[in-house]
Design a protein around this nucleic acid. Structure first.
Lengths: 115, 115
DNA sequence: CCAACCTATTCCCATATGCTGATATGTCAA
DNA sequence: TTGACATATCAGCATATGGGAATAGGTTGG
């Protein structure tokens, strides 16, 4: 097997930097493809393809507006990502624990203050 | 160019399901490679390789213990992931905004109640 | 009808992947 | 030293990728 398809998963879809940037742009509101192309300086075919990936995994949706296509962020799609990180949230922040570890280790070593 | 290397990024590293599972196991505490192999029923060479990827991006560290190698989660490594999702946090939860959108659209369409 | 415009799609390529199987490295026990 | 155990690494494979260039599709305006 090769790597999982980018369209198989929110995690795989979001792994690409350009797709994350696109989502950030869309975070500010609905945009046409051309706007994204201008904002991010990515070639149009690529933007279209990235949007296809994002649409497949349910991160964006799209509606027609004349000859333009307006894409909109679908934030619920990010939920799996958020939910997966959440349990680690405390561990990510707790510097206190690490300081405790450090202090504890100092004591275990004999509490010497140096010099 | 091909897809970004799995070792280039926390996002790419975490894109793989097995690597996420490994991180979850390590979330409970330090484990030897063999323990992970047993827990997740993934072949040993793969586990070793996945751990290498995770080590490269700073998500785990490892210390020797006799003939075993004990891996430990390094939660700070998840910070880029957490930080990237955070700004979307409110949008992920807010159903209210979507109801507002819906009501607003009804009004824009002329406020007809049907029939 | 035609031309201009915006987007989507297709073809091609080098690249990196995850998996399997086999083997190397390193550590403990006798 | 020899053998058993734990882990890392290597070779080979099918697969999907992101990017570039070119083109097709659909919409608007004259």
């Amino acid at each position: 097997m090769a790597r999982a398809a980018t369209t198989s998963d929110v995690f795989n879809a979001v792994a690409d930097v350009h797709r994350r940037e696109i989502l950030e742009v869309l975070g500010a509101g609905e945009r046409a493809v051309g706007d994204i192309v201008d904002d991010l300086a990515i070639a149009q075919p690529q933007v279209s393809n990235h949007l296809r990936v994002l649409r497949t995994v349910g991160l964006v949706n799209c509606r027609a507006d004349g000859r333009r296509r307006l894409y909109r962020l679908q934030p619920e799609g990010l939920r799996p990502l958020r939910d997966w990180v959440s349990p680690f949230e405390r561990m990510i922040n707790d510097r206190l624990d690490r300081i405790d570890d450090y202090l504890g280790e100092l004591q275990r070593r004999g509490g010497g203050h140096g010099t």
